[in-house]
Amino acid sequence: MIRLRDITYHYPRATTPALDKLSLEVPAGQLCAVIGANGSGKSTLCYALAGFVPHFYRGQLSGHIEVAGIDVAQSSLAEIAGTVGLVFSNPFNQITGARFTVHDEIAFGMENMGVPPDEMRARIDEVLRFAGLTDLADRSPFALSGGQQQRLAIVSVLVMRPKVIILDEPTSQLDPVGSKEVFAVLRDLAAAGESTIILAEHKLEWVAVFADRVLVLQDGRLVADGPPREILTGDNLHDWGLEPTRYTQVARSALNAGRRDNGEALPATLEAAVEYFR
């Protein structure tokens, strides 16, 4: 579904690459989390997969990016739009302002793609229910809370039926309640298994719960790629500028204090921690 071969990218006037000889493959239906310290290249990777690198940000890109059969560098943003959906961190700026209600804001992308009105209405009702926004359908999108606006941004992309959905730190500007709301939608989205999801995220406790696979970026390079538990409880996490989840930290403290066996795999989620300490 996603194939990157030897991707190197420099932003305009930058001397060091934001992505450095990056190669990876993500099969269809997988939820792949991208983690790394600030400046590691997570957002650049997201923008590259959605075509904004290099079409929007310019700069120099080498290598080959293929997403859902589309050669990203050779296709226009308009051609990529229906196939790849992008959600970024600022919920407010993802409201186009071109439509008056939540219902019509969701319709905006489909209107641009020429979807017939009856089909649009059916799809909108479906995603409103999915994101728990049905009661807010007639409100102004600007009158919603941050968490509601971010859910609106997600379903506004989802309703266009993209094959790949890219989420660049979708909860970084939200309070804990808003973050929880957004992750609940992501959980349902992942459970449906209809889309390939790339999730750049700092909140490792959520990554541990949702991701099928974790990629770690450092200085634009892919430094680790594996199952969540293996990556998130590994010894290298600090070297990559990341903090283990609180469950891993507690388990490691217990291990260092000699209260647990060294052979047991450390937990990264609450459920695994309960199991670990049972």
Binding site: A50, F52, F56, S76, L77, A78, A81, G82, G85, L86, F88, N93, Q94, I95, T96, G97, A98, H103, D104, A107, F108, G109, M110, E111, N112, M113, G114, V115, P116, P117, M120, R121, A153, S156, V157, M160
Partner: peptide, 19 residues
């Protein structure tokens, strides 16, 4: 906002519909 518009196929040419 320009990125949000592009994501919603605002730059697409061809026939469009409306609610």
């Amino acid at each position: 906002r320009a990125i949000a518009l592009e994501v919603r196929a605002f730059g697409r040419r061809g026939s469009k519909t409306t609610l």
